[in-house]
Design a protein around this nucleic acid. Structure first.
Lengths: 187, 187
DNA sequence: CAGATCATGTAACCTGTTACATGATTTC
DNA sequence: GAAATCATGTAACAGGTTACATGATCTG
């Protein structure tokens, strides 16, 4: 249940609403985990039933009342227990590689177009990490003074950058190899 | 529906049963897609309803009858249509990075133990790719004479290797950075 | 005046995992 | 004698996505 533990993680920084939590996902960890509001709200209710959170209502007039969630000692305990638990390598689900694996069935131009498109998308993602995300991490460290935490935020960002660079290099290599197959097979 | 298209892909090589297909998953593409038999069997039925497959029964005495699936022209068309369709970057779900992101909440020794464990698992996976999987690809090329296809099988394997190497390097880097934080913060 | 922001949810649906059900033959 | 191999499934459950429902205020 990594979603619940991510929610506990953010709530260990400060009390928040479901809506606030969604924004934290979208602004910081979206590139390795995300969730829709329609999943977050029921999850928070179940977490409260488990005793991991308490809820405080902030009454408002023209909008739905804000429900502010606070982490409990049990919640902090659960987060740490989960963090210390041995972690399996997570299984990958990569539809694009299925397309490539069966690429021999496709015209060369089609598969090359796919690879070039995928490469462009990963380049865009990489640019976003360098510009937007790195900046967001730094701002957060300055705003909150959480210097030690900032190191860990930076580490996950390093992984994101490395991942995109890996894809880009692989796409280049794949394009080269495919361009040279038919030449070799014709000799 | 990448599962269905992976099934179409294998059936485009030759007619097979659900059981055979499961073995192809386990022996070739398991590192970027897999499925249980309990998902494959109903999927094949729905694909037959769609007209992508036909089914032929091979009667047996002491075992359930073999149901051999053949791809139809509609099936080949659907596979190609899907392969040519623009592909989004697939979203990652990486619970381990959640543990790291909130690693500031953990004792240094705990998070280092996690990183060392994760690194070992990825090293094992990398060894398997080098030894087992590369060999399986070569054998398959020799057995079937599908030289051109073999290039594409090799490409996906390259990605697998690159992915594991990326993790290993990142873990090393992360361990170094974490070991040096508390020293720096104490100055 | 259109779209983003704030703020909560429910219901239907799809995908994937786990558990259950059956059972002979071959290998260690 | 236990475990793997061959061969088929169904049912319950968990996680995640999409669509639906409501509605005021702020920004361009």
């Amino acid at each position: 249940m990594p979603l619940k533990h991510a929610l506990l993680g953010f709530l260990s920084y400060q009390p928040m609403t479901g809506y606030d939590l969604k924004q934290h996902f979208d602004r910081s960890i979206y590139y390795f985990w995300n969730a829709k509001l329609s999943q977050i709200y029921p999850a928070l209710n179940r977490m409260r039933e488990n005793g991991w959170l308490t809820m405080e209502v902030d009454y408002q007039e023209d909008r739905p009342n804000r429900k502010v969630y606070h982490i409990t000692e049990a919640g902090r305990g659960e987060l740490q227990r989960w963090q210390q638990e041995p972690t399996d390598v997570s299984s990958i689900r990569e539809p694009f590689l299925i397309k490539v694996f069966f690429g021999g069935r496709l015209e060369q131009g089609e598969i090359l177009a796919q690879l070039r498109h995928q490469m462009r998308l990963h380049q865009e993602q990489l640019t976003a990490y360098h510009e937007k995300v790195r900046e967001a991490v730094q701002q957060n460290v300055e705003a909150t003074g959480m210097v030690r935490e900032g190191v860990f935020w930076g580490l996950t960002l390093d992984m994101g950058i490395r991942y995109e660079q890996g894809w880009i290099e692989w796409c280049e290599e794949a394009i080269d190899k495919i361009e040279s197959i038919d030449k070799e097979l014709m000799q």
